[in-house]
Design a protein around this nucleic acid. Structure first.
Lengths: 204, 204
DNA sequence: TCTACAAGTAAGTGTTCAATTACTTACCAA
DNA sequence: TTGGTAAGTAATTGAACACTTACTTGTAGA
């Protein structure tokens, strides 16, 4: 038995991951901005004050969550790309992997958008920007490979293609945030992806 | 002279529009969630309490702002579409008109995303959803016209095409929110639009 | 001119929430 | 066994903020 009775006295490392998971769960249900340290504590059956034994501030929690998201998401994206046979198939696989990730963690888009909104340069926003830059780079590499192999039109505007790719996913994410259900999302994603590929594929 | 000296004692209707403009200005500078009624009052050289002479609650202010945005945006979109010669040109004109609107009112995407984040169904969120539905409908009509005239591929997935259109704009909006400058946005928009049209245009 | 009312102010109230404090308890190593 | 420390609690603090209240003032219309 791993956790007998009411969980007490976990090492800080464990608590930190528990807190991150709690935030993701709470973000999936409601407005991330409304998540309080008391909400987090409740979910772990802890007192509100105990949260601050494991993170120095609430901002530090957001940073840790962002870090978690980034490492998990990119692990999935890169794995999907490498499993594919061709660069273009890799792009498609990344698209669907990303959509799957969002469906599995519905709180993530909400979190991202929350930090985007601030116009000052917080560490949070820098983290989001960094993540998007990394994403663009990954996409442009893939597109470059595809161009070499003649899978996409020669002289393709790869920067614009990356932007449209990310925009398409963001559009889907927003759609699922609006109607609250991510059930149809997978199917819609397939159709949008198909259309996207029309824009970049080498003409037959 | 319309406004001599320190403005005092304006009719409520005037104040209401002043408040809406103040909110848009403040949202352009910072996090909309951080805008307080005191911030708004400061900007109009009023006391904080005076704001509530013109709106019953802060939520009513958000609703009024959303309404303002919706009516202005759609006026521009529809005008752009009608000025164009063909349905496809109309789509392009709408795209650029929307981007221009965002560049002119950088606070608007922030406001929209703010209300999207809540998962409960607030009137605000319903308003945003309604606006997006109206947008989709407008796009699908345009695409239908273009299909009739043979400007786009026959049997085009118009729903997916509308989604990709909106996603592309959202991607651009997020981009400009991230780097804080909307200067390059117009140029990037042109390139993304060109790519988008590749996806739907009838093959020559 | 005067008066009713819309528009304004200043000073609260109540609540929410992050962070702190003072204290307690479980656990591990010597 | 015992002492130090990491993990926990309950209670409090202080700031922020939406909204209210009691009162004042400018102004349009009779």
């Amino acid at each position: 038995m791993a956790t007998p009775g009411p969980r007490t006295r976990q090492p800080s490392e464990t608590r930190q991951t528990e807190i991150i998971e709690a935030v993701l769960d709470l973000a999936a249900q409601g407005n991330p901005a409304d998540i309080t340290t008391a909400d987090i504590a409740d979910r772990l059956n802890l007192s509100q004050g105990a949260v601050f034994k494991h993170f120095p501030s609430k901002g530090a929690i957001w940073l840790a969550v962002l870090d978690w998201v980034q490492s998990r998401l990119f692990a999935r994206l890169e794995a999907a790309a490498q499993r594919a046979d061709t660069p273009l198939a890799g792009l498609g696989a990344m698209f669907m992997a990303h959509v799957k990730f969002i469906a599995a963690h519905p709180g993530v888009p909400r979190l991202i958008f929350q930090h985007l909104r601030r116009s000052e340069d917080t560490p949070l926003k820098a983290g989001v920007r960094n993540m998007l830059a990394r994403y663009r780079k990954l996409l442009i590499e893939c597109l470059g490979e595809a161009e070499k192999q003649g899978q996409v039109v020669q002289g393709l505007d790869k920067s614009a293609a990356a932007m449209l790719f990310i925009g398409a996913i963001q559009g889907l994410a927003i759609q699922s945030m609006l109607n609250g259900s991510s059930t149809k999302m997978q199917e819609e994603a397939r159709r949008v992806l198909k259309l996207y590929l029309q824009a970049i594929e080498a003409k037959s």
